[in-house]
């Protein structure tokens, strides 16, 4: 009885996994193999012929100026977007986490930017900061027309676009903080500020860690906002790693592009693992 059962379970299990597995093989695992392999060959102009170059293309590309520029620009972008976005999101969530009449309206407004895709947010911000007729086109600090400030302008659109998600997740975390803990802290003579930093913040730290990880990944994957707002310019100042990879999809550039993609993969994996290691020590998981 048992043997027959598990044989049937195995067949059914494999049948149920097959549709997903087919997609994963075709669009995740085979491409990963081809990505590694593409990096070992140099393609001719039309992608019709390739020459084995071994790992020299890996070392050349990963130490080359193009890749290093991409890493620098992507990392700067992450630094511009993540801390500011997180602080603003927490601010909105703390403000909206109280019982007042009409609070649902404010909460919906604060969450509303999740309705905007990156493309929509970029067009909306194009109205504000485009160099010709943007409302803030005179603000040099955010100017898209100058290499030293363009990335900041683009980053601002991402900060705004991510506010909704950050707000929703932090608010959910705040609402899960048991009331008794706050009451106990108040009885112990904690003022609101000390209560926030000593009691609330540690309790919501798992959600904050999650947000940091997600926002950093978003930052490293930024593409649409660059494509729409600057097209990588001026003078390549906003060419993030993903933008460079996208630009390398023509057959003759595939070799370098593939190595840069592997570089991006390694970078995001290492950064994510580091965040878990470093931040996890400070994160407080209940029970």
């Amino acid at each position: 009885m048992r043997g027959r059962r598990s044989w049937k379970d195995t067949a059914l299990g494999l049948a149920f996994l097959a549709p997903s597995a087919a997609v994963f093989v075709a669009f995740f695992f085979l491409p990963l193999y081809r990505l590694i392999r593409l990096g070992l060959f140099q393609q001719n102009r039309y992608g019709t012929k390739e020459t084995w170059v071994g790992f020299s293309q890996y070392t050349d590309t990963l130490t080359g100026q193009e890749f290093l520029d991409g890493v620098r620009i992507s990392a700067t972008y992450v630094l511009y977007t993540v801390p500011l976005g997180l602080v603003l999101g927490v601010l909105l969530a703390v403000a909206a986490n109280r019982r007042l009449r009409g609070m649902k309206v404010f909460q919906t407004i604060f969450a509303s930017t999740v309705a905007s895709s990156v493309a929509v947010a970029s067009v909306v911000f194009f109205v504000l900061i485009n160099p010709q007729v943007g409302y803030f086109s005179d603000v040099r600090f955010l100017s898209l027309a100058h290499p030293d400030s363009a990335l900041r302008g683009v980053a601002l659109s991402s900060v705004w676009q991510n506010l909704g998600l950050t707000f929703i997740i932090v608010l959910a975390a705040l609402q899960a903080v048991p009331e008794e803990i706050n009451e106990a802290a108040t009885l112990d003579g904690y003022g609101p500020v000390r209560r926030f930093f000593r009691v609330t913040l540690p309790l919501i730290s798992p959600s904050l860690l999650f947000l940091v990880v997600v926002l950093v990944i978003f930052g490293f994957q930024a593409f649409a906002q660059i494509d729409i707002l600057t097209g990588g310019g001026p003078a390549g100042a906003t060419e993030t790693l993903v933008y460079k990879i996208f630009d390398s999809r023509d057959p003759y550039r595939q070799g370098t592009g593939s190595v840069m993609a592997i570089g991006l993969f390694a970078l995001t994996t290492v950064v994510t693992a580091l965040q878990f290691r470093l931040l996890n020590r400070r994160v407080h998981y209940g029970n």
Binding site: F24, L32, L35, V242, I245, S258, A261, I262, L264
Partner: peptide, 16 residues
Amino acid sequence: TMLLPLEVTLIPNVQT
């Protein structure tokens, strides 16, 4: 597969 975003496998996937 969640660790492998589309940004990374873009080039071979476009080729496919």
